[in-house]
Protein backbone atom coordinates (compact mmCIF):
# COMPACT_ATOMS: atom_id res chain seq x y z
CA UNK A 1 0.00 0.00 0.00
CA UNK A 2 2.79 2.44 0.88
CA UNK A 3 4.46 1.54 -2.41
CA UNK A 4 1.25 2.48 -4.23
CA UNK A 5 1.17 5.86 -2.50
CA UNK A 6 4.80 6.45 -3.47
CA UNK A 7 4.13 5.46 -7.06
CA UNK A 8 1.10 7.74 -7.15
CA UNK A 9 3.14 10.59 -5.69
CA UNK A 10 5.69 10.27 -8.49
CA UNK A 11 2.92 9.90 -11.06
CA UNK A 12 1.29 13.07 -9.82
CA UNK A 13 4.15 15.25 -11.03
CA UNK A 14 4.71 13.46 -14.34
CA UNK A 15 2.90 14.70 -17.47
CA UNK A 16 0.56 12.52 -19.49
CA UNK A 17 -2.27 11.92 -17.03
CA UNK A 18 -5.54 10.56 -18.48
CA UNK A 19 -8.36 13.05 -18.87
CA UNK A 20 -11.34 10.78 -18.36
CA UNK A 21 -12.14 7.88 -16.03
CA UNK A 22 -10.78 4.48 -16.94
CA UNK A 23 -13.29 1.70 -17.47
CA UNK A 24 -11.26 -0.51 -15.18
CA UNK A 25 -13.09 -2.86 -12.82
CA UNK A 26 -10.90 -4.36 -10.13
CA UNK A 27 -11.94 -7.52 -8.33
CA UNK A 28 -10.92 -9.65 -5.40
CA UNK A 29 -12.46 -12.45 -3.41
CA UNK A 30 -11.92 -12.52 0.29
CA UNK A 31 -13.18 -14.33 3.37
CA UNK A 32 -12.62 -12.02 6.32
CA UNK A 33 -10.50 -13.42 9.14
CA UNK A 34 -11.57 -13.34 12.76
CA UNK A 35 -8.32 -11.60 13.73
CA UNK A 36 -8.86 -8.79 11.21
CA UNK A 37 -12.45 -8.35 12.33
CA UNK A 38 -11.40 -8.31 16.00
CA UNK A 39 -8.70 -5.69 15.33
CA UNK A 40 -11.11 -3.54 13.32
CA UNK A 41 -13.73 -3.85 16.05
CA UNK A 42 -11.32 -2.84 18.80
CA UNK A 43 -10.21 0.28 16.89
CA UNK A 44 -13.71 1.37 15.87
CA UNK A 45 -15.75 0.18 18.88
CA UNK A 46 -17.64 -2.76 17.39
CA UNK A 47 -18.09 -6.01 19.33
CA UNK A 48 -16.71 -9.23 17.89
CA UNK A 49 -19.85 -10.83 16.49
CA UNK A 50 -20.72 -13.17 13.66
CA UNK A 51 -22.21 -10.38 11.55
CA UNK A 52 -19.69 -7.98 10.00
CA UNK A 53 -20.05 -4.33 11.03
CA UNK A 54 -21.84 -2.41 8.27
CA UNK A 55 -18.71 -0.37 7.56
CA UNK A 56 -16.28 -3.31 7.53
CA UNK A 57 -16.51 -4.26 3.84
CA UNK A 58 -15.19 -0.78 3.03
CA UNK A 59 -11.75 -1.84 4.26
CA UNK A 60 -11.95 -4.90 2.00
CA UNK A 61 -12.70 -2.67 -1.01
CA UNK A 62 -10.26 0.07 -0.09
CA UNK A 63 -7.07 -1.60 -1.44
CA UNK A 64 -8.80 -1.89 -4.83
CA UNK A 65 -9.83 1.77 -4.66
CA UNK A 66 -6.23 2.78 -4.08
CA UNK A 67 -4.95 0.52 -6.83
CA UNK A 68 -7.44 2.05 -9.25
CA UNK A 69 -6.69 5.62 -8.21
CA UNK A 70 -2.91 5.13 -8.21
CA UNK A 71 -2.88 3.91 -11.83
CA UNK A 72 -1.67 6.25 -14.59
CA UNK A 73 -5.02 5.74 -16.29
CA UNK A 74 -6.76 7.54 -13.40
CA UNK A 75 -7.26 11.25 -14.19
CA UNK A 76 -6.76 12.66 -10.69
CA UNK A 77 -3.61 12.49 -8.55
CA UNK A 78 -4.11 10.20 -5.55
CA UNK A 79 -2.05 12.31 -3.12
CA UNK A 80 -4.26 15.16 -2.02
CA UNK A 81 -7.58 13.46 -2.81
CA UNK A 82 -10.01 14.26 0.01
CA UNK A 83 -12.77 11.86 1.04
CA UNK A 84 -15.84 14.13 1.21
CA UNK A 85 -18.77 11.75 1.39
CA UNK A 86 -19.57 8.06 1.75
CA UNK A 87 -22.68 6.00 1.30
CA UNK A 88 -23.03 2.35 2.27
CA UNK A 89 -26.02 0.06 1.84
CA UNK A 90 -26.06 -3.37 3.40
CA UNK A 91 -28.83 -5.45 1.83
CA UNK A 92 -28.57 -8.05 4.56
CA UNK A 93 -26.26 -8.99 7.42
CA UNK A 94 -23.00 -10.45 6.16
CA UNK A 95 -21.76 -13.39 8.20
CA UNK A 96 -18.20 -14.03 9.16
CA UNK A 97 -17.01 -16.94 7.05
CA UNK A 98 -18.89 -15.89 3.89
CA UNK A 99 -16.71 -15.61 0.81
CA UNK A 100 -17.09 -12.08 -0.51
CA UNK A 101 -16.57 -11.05 -4.13
CA UNK A 102 -15.56 -7.40 -4.15
CA UNK A 103 -15.69 -5.25 -7.33
CA UNK A 104 -14.49 -1.67 -7.50
CA UNK A 105 -14.85 0.88 -10.30
CA UNK A 106 -14.88 4.67 -10.70
CA UNK A 107 -17.76 6.79 -11.95
CA UNK A 108 -19.37 10.24 -11.82
CA UNK A 109 -16.29 12.32 -12.61
CA UNK A 110 -17.89 15.74 -12.16
CA UNK A 111 -17.39 19.31 -11.09
CA UNK A 112 -17.29 20.30 -7.42
CA UNK A 113 -17.39 23.90 -6.18
CA UNK A 114 -13.73 23.55 -5.18
CA UNK A 115 -12.47 21.32 -8.01
CA UNK A 116 -13.52 17.97 -9.34
CA UNK A 117 -15.08 14.98 -7.63
CA UNK A 118 -15.22 11.31 -8.42
CA UNK A 119 -17.02 8.31 -6.93
CA UNK A 120 -15.30 5.02 -6.23
CA UNK A 121 -18.02 2.40 -6.26
CA UNK A 122 -17.67 -0.93 -4.49
CA UNK A 123 -20.01 -3.88 -4.79
CA UNK A 124 -19.83 -6.94 -2.58
CA UNK A 125 -21.57 -10.14 -3.62
CA UNK A 126 -21.99 -13.58 -2.13
CA UNK A 127 -22.58 -16.35 -4.68
CA UNK A 128 -23.65 -13.80 -7.27
CA UNK A 129 -26.10 -11.98 -4.98
CA UNK A 130 -25.31 -8.37 -4.10
CA UNK A 131 -25.13 -7.97 -0.33
CA UNK A 132 -23.38 -4.62 0.08
CA UNK A 133 -22.83 -1.40 -1.88
CA UNK A 134 -20.37 1.34 -1.14
CA UNK A 135 -19.88 4.72 -2.79
CA UNK A 136 -16.93 6.86 -1.70
CA UNK A 137 -16.81 10.41 -3.08
CA UNK A 138 -13.38 12.03 -3.36
CA UNK A 139 -12.54 15.65 -4.10
CA UNK A 140 -9.46 16.81 -6.03
CA UNK A 141 -9.04 20.47 -5.09
CA UNK A 142 -8.44 22.72 -8.08
CA UNK A 143 -8.83 19.91 -10.60
CA UNK A 144 -11.16 20.21 -13.51
CA UNK A 145 -13.81 17.75 -14.59
CA UNK A 146 -14.07 17.03 -18.34
CA UNK A 147 -17.58 18.39 -18.66
CA UNK A 148 -19.35 21.07 -16.71
CA UNK A 149 -21.51 18.39 -15.07
CA UNK A 150 -22.03 19.26 -11.40
CA UNK A 151 -21.41 16.45 -8.93
CA UNK A 152 -23.98 15.27 -6.44
CA UNK A 153 -23.29 15.39 -2.75
CA UNK A 154 -25.59 13.92 -0.10
CA UNK A 155 -28.11 16.26 1.44
CA UNK A 156 -27.73 15.51 5.13
CA UNK A 157 -29.69 17.00 8.01
CA UNK A 158 -27.96 19.16 10.60
CA UNK A 159 -28.18 17.53 14.02
CA UNK A 160 -27.75 19.98 16.84
CA UNK A 161 -28.79 18.34 20.09
CA UNK A 162 -26.93 17.58 23.30
CA UNK A 163 -23.99 15.20 23.08
CA UNK A 164 -24.88 11.51 23.46
CA UNK A 165 -21.23 10.74 24.07
CA UNK A 166 -17.90 12.47 24.45
CA UNK A 167 -14.95 10.75 22.80
CA UNK A 168 -11.38 11.27 23.83
CA UNK A 169 -9.66 10.44 20.56
CA UNK A 170 -6.01 9.54 21.16
CA UNK A 171 -3.11 10.70 19.00
CA UNK A 172 -2.41 7.22 17.62
CA UNK A 173 -5.94 6.73 16.25
CA UNK A 174 -4.77 7.34 12.67
CA UNK A 175 -1.98 4.79 12.96
CA UNK A 176 -4.30 2.26 14.59
CA UNK A 177 -6.98 2.64 11.92
CA UNK A 178 -4.30 2.56 9.20
CA UNK A 179 -3.21 -0.83 10.51
CA UNK A 180 -6.71 -2.34 10.20
CA UNK A 181 -7.81 -0.56 7.01
CA UNK A 182 -4.63 -0.38 4.94
CA UNK A 183 -5.25 3.35 4.49
CA UNK A 184 -1.73 4.61 5.15
CA UNK A 185 -2.29 8.08 3.74
CA UNK A 186 0.45 10.14 5.50
CA UNK A 187 -2.04 12.81 6.63
CA UNK A 188 -3.36 10.31 9.19
CA UNK A 189 -0.11 8.89 10.49
CA UNK A 190 1.83 11.56 12.35
CA UNK A 191 2.04 15.35 12.74
CA UNK A 192 5.17 15.72 10.57
CA UNK A 193 3.79 13.96 7.50
CA UNK A 194 0.42 15.65 8.02
CA UNK A 195 2.12 19.09 8.01
CA UNK A 196 3.67 18.30 4.63
CA UNK A 197 0.10 18.18 3.30
CA UNK A 198 -0.97 21.38 5.01
CA UNK A 199 -2.62 20.03 8.17
CA UNK A 200 -1.50 21.37 11.57
CA UNK A 201 -1.58 17.84 13.04
CA UNK A 202 -2.48 14.33 11.89
CA UNK A 203 -6.20 13.93 11.16
CA UNK A 204 -8.50 10.99 11.83
CA UNK A 205 -9.63 8.89 8.88
CA UNK A 206 -13.15 9.90 7.89
CA UNK A 207 -14.13 6.25 7.74
CA UNK A 208 -12.86 5.72 11.28
CA UNK A 209 -15.08 8.56 12.49
CA UNK A 210 -17.99 7.11 10.51
CA UNK A 211 -17.41 3.61 11.89
CA UNK A 212 -16.97 4.84 15.46
CA UNK A 213 -20.27 6.77 15.23
CA UNK A 214 -22.11 3.75 13.84
CA UNK A 215 -20.62 1.50 16.52
CA UNK A 216 -22.19 3.79 19.13
CA UNK A 217 -25.58 2.78 17.73
CA UNK A 218 -24.86 -0.92 18.29
CA UNK A 219 -28.09 -2.87 18.63
CA UNK A 220 -30.18 0.03 17.27
CA UNK A 221 -29.39 -0.23 13.55
CA UNK A 222 -31.34 -2.57 11.25
CA UNK A 223 -29.31 -5.34 9.58
CA UNK A 224 -30.32 -4.05 6.15
CA UNK A 225 -29.52 -0.34 6.26
CA UNK A 226 -28.12 2.61 4.36
CA UNK A 227 -25.47 4.66 6.14
CA UNK A 228 -24.65 7.94 4.49
CA UNK A 229 -22.08 10.41 5.78
CA UNK A 230 -20.61 13.72 4.74
CA UNK A 231 -17.15 14.66 5.99
CA UNK A 232 -16.69 18.27 7.02
CA UNK A 233 -13.95 19.78 9.18
CA UNK A 234 -11.04 17.36 9.70
CA UNK A 235 -10.82 15.80 13.16
CA UNK A 236 -7.33 16.72 14.37
CA UNK A 237 -5.50 14.19 16.51
CA UNK A 238 -5.57 14.03 19.43
CA UNK A 239 -8.84 15.68 20.27
CA UNK A 240 -12.09 15.50 22.14
CA UNK A 241 -15.19 15.07 20.02
CA UNK A 242 -18.90 14.84 20.69
CA UNK A 243 -21.34 12.42 19.15
CA UNK A 244 -24.89 13.65 18.65
CA UNK A 245 -27.64 11.20 17.76
CA UNK A 246 -31.28 11.80 17.04
CA UNK A 247 -33.86 9.16 16.31
CA UNK A 248 -35.49 9.65 12.92
CA UNK A 249 -38.23 7.86 11.06
CA UNK A 250 -36.78 4.44 10.10
CA UNK A 251 -33.37 5.22 11.55
CA UNK A 252 -31.04 7.80 13.01
CA UNK A 253 -29.52 11.18 12.23
CA UNK A 254 -26.12 11.80 13.70
CA UNK A 255 -23.22 14.20 13.85
CA UNK A 256 -19.70 14.29 15.22
CA UNK A 257 -18.52 17.74 16.27
CA UNK A 258 -15.76 19.28 18.34
CA UNK A 259 -16.44 20.86 21.70
CA UNK A 260 -16.76 24.28 20.11
CA UNK A 261 -19.48 23.02 17.80
CA UNK A 262 -17.54 22.71 14.54
CA UNK A 263 -18.87 19.70 12.65
CA UNK A 264 -16.57 16.85 11.58
CA UNK A 265 -19.23 14.56 10.17
CA UNK A 266 -22.96 14.45 9.60
CA UNK A 267 -24.77 11.26 8.75
CA UNK A 268 -27.98 9.31 8.49
CA UNK A 269 -28.81 5.65 9.02
CA UNK A 270 -31.98 4.38 7.38
CA UNK A 271 -33.62 0.99 7.03
CA UNK A 272 -32.81 -0.30 3.55
Amino acid sequence: MIALYAKAAVGAVLPGRARSLPGTVLERSVTPEVGHLADYGRVCGFPLADALPLTFPHVLAFPLQVELMAARSFPLPLPGLVHVANRITAHRAIGLGERLDVRVRAERFAAHPRGAQVDLVAEVSVDGTRVWDGRSTYLARGAQAPTGLAGELPDLPEVDGPAAAVWRVPADTGRRYAAVSGDVNPIHLNPVTAKAFGFPRAIAHGMWTAARALAALQGRVPEAATYEVGFRKPLLLPSTAELVTEQAKEGWDLAVRNRKGAVHLTGTVRRA
Binding site: P47, L48, A49
Partner: peptide, 14 residues
Protein backbone atom coordinates in the same frame (compact mmCIF):
# COMPACT_ATOMS: atom_id res chain seq x y z
CA UNK B 1 -9.07 -16.13 21.86
CA UNK B 2 -9.95 -12.69 20.48
CA UNK B 3 -13.42 -12.48 22.03
CA UNK B 4 -14.04 -10.61 25.27
CA UNK B 5 -16.64 -11.44 27.91
CA UNK B 6 -18.72 -8.53 26.61
CA UNK B 7 -18.48 -9.80 23.01
CA UNK B 8 -19.64 -13.27 24.00
CA UNK B 9 -22.37 -12.15 26.40
CA UNK B 10 -23.79 -9.64 23.88
CA UNK B 11 -23.71 -12.22 21.09
CA UNK B 12 -25.43 -14.80 23.28
CA UNK B 13 -28.07 -12.28 24.38
CA UNK B 14 -28.73 -11.23 20.79
Amino acid sequence: ARASNLDMLTTTLD
